[in-house]
């Protein structure tokens, strides 16, 4: 990694080749200057804020996720919300749900908690498992490496969404669903991270400073943590940025199929699934969760693409 990063900073000679060639602040600056990535970051920050402040926001609106308002839907037509745009009003900022009349804004902001929470939680777990397995495989002996690599191959051979659907059948109902979702998605999706970490470790372990640490009698765990791990940060972050939207799609997909979070807990995928039968009389019910999902996914994808471009040593386009 050292070599490629030095190449990235161009002709300016580093003061000391053993120190990190590029200060962390520079990467951050470049990322902020990348318009697409910056847009992504702004949207993500907003969404995270919405999720964190969900109780405050719904209190501000004066609604909650579960109260039904039968007086706001037209029972004669099967439950279409009364009023324009799915019943948008000063009291219900995004209108109400068909049939039940539950507040859509409240369900959307609480749904953000599930969608973002599950996606981020699953990503954190994936990185934890993937990096641990990858470093262990890269530093371990031939036997450990081949055993762990086969295990990695096996998880990559799983049709993960199908498998996750199946797993949902046998998890007891007493365990909180969002937790189950995050763990299942993570357990099925750490393979690629592990493969990346292993490859990186294999190339790092031949470096002189790692050899020096080993010769000085540092125990393997210390070598892994102090010498290998810092070298993994850049590629892993780049990859993790891509994992978040993938995990979000998995959660939305599972909830969409009806095996994700259980009602009345709202999640975007689940709202979308409920909305599919209503798109003719009440298109807002599809647009609201679908739009939120699309916007957030796009934001993460833009950010991930920006991170990749910024950290890519061959890239000189956005150099400050």
């Amino acid at each position: 990694m050292t070599v490629t990063l030095e190449a990235a900073t161009g002709p300016q000679p580093g003061p000391d080749p053993s120190s990190p060639p590029r200060p962390r602040g520079a990467t951050w600056r470049r990322l902020r200057q990348d318009k697409a990535a910056a847009t992504g970051m702004v949207i993500i920050t907003l969404m995270v804020l919405v999720a964190v402040l969900a109780p405050l926001l719904t209190a501000l609106e004066g609604q909650d996720t579960t109260t039904q308002h039968p007086e706001l839907v037209d029972s004669a037509s099967g439950g279409t919300p009364l009023g324009s745009l799915g019943g948008v009003s000063a009291a219900h900022w995004l209108g109400v749900e068909p049939q039940t009349g539950r507040d859509l804004f409240a369900r959307l902001v609480y749904g953000a908690r599930i969608s973002l929470g599950v996606a981020l939680g699953a990503t954190a777990l994936q990185v934890l498992i993937g990096v641990s397995v990858g470093i262990a495989a890269g530093l371990g002996g031939r036997f450990v490496d081949s055993a762990l690599s086969r295990l990695t191959d096996l998880t990559l051979a799983f049709p993960s969404v199908l498998f996750a659907i199946g797993l949902m059948a046998i998890v007891p109902g007493s365990v909180p669903r969002p937790l189950v979702l995050a763990v299942v998605i993570a357990l099925l999706g750490w393979g690629a991270t592990a493969r990346l970490a292993r490859g990186q470790t294999l190339s790092l372990r031949t470096r002189d400073y790692v050899a020096a640490a080993k010769l000085s009698g540092a125990p393997p765990l210390r070598v892994a943590r102090r010498e290998i791990l810092p070298g993994l940060v850049t590629p892993i972050i780049t990859y993790a940025a891509l994992l978040v939207p993938t995990n979000m799609i998995s959660e939305a997909g599972l909830s969409f199929l009806g095996v994700g979070v259980r009602p009345p807990t709202p999640s975007w995928g689940q709202m979308l699934s409920a909305g599919t039968t209503w798109f003719r009389p009440d298109v807002m019910y599809v647009l609201v969760p679908g739009g939120a999902l699309f916007l957030t996914l796009l934001a993460f994808t833009l950010l991930a693409d920006g991170v990749r471009r910024t950290l890519d040593p061959r890239n000189t386009e956005v150099a400050a």
């Binding site: 939207p245 939305a252 997909g253 003719r280 298109v283 996914l297 796009l298």
Partner: peptide, 22 residues
């Protein structure tokens, strides 16, 4: 490609259904 990556396949399906069938 970028938008496609951010588009869950069921969302694409839903939009196509609404536009072309409905």
């Amino acid at each position: 490609v970028l938008v496609g990556y951010a588009m869950p396949v069921f969302l694409v399906a839903l939009i196509l259904l609404i536009v072309f069938c409905s």
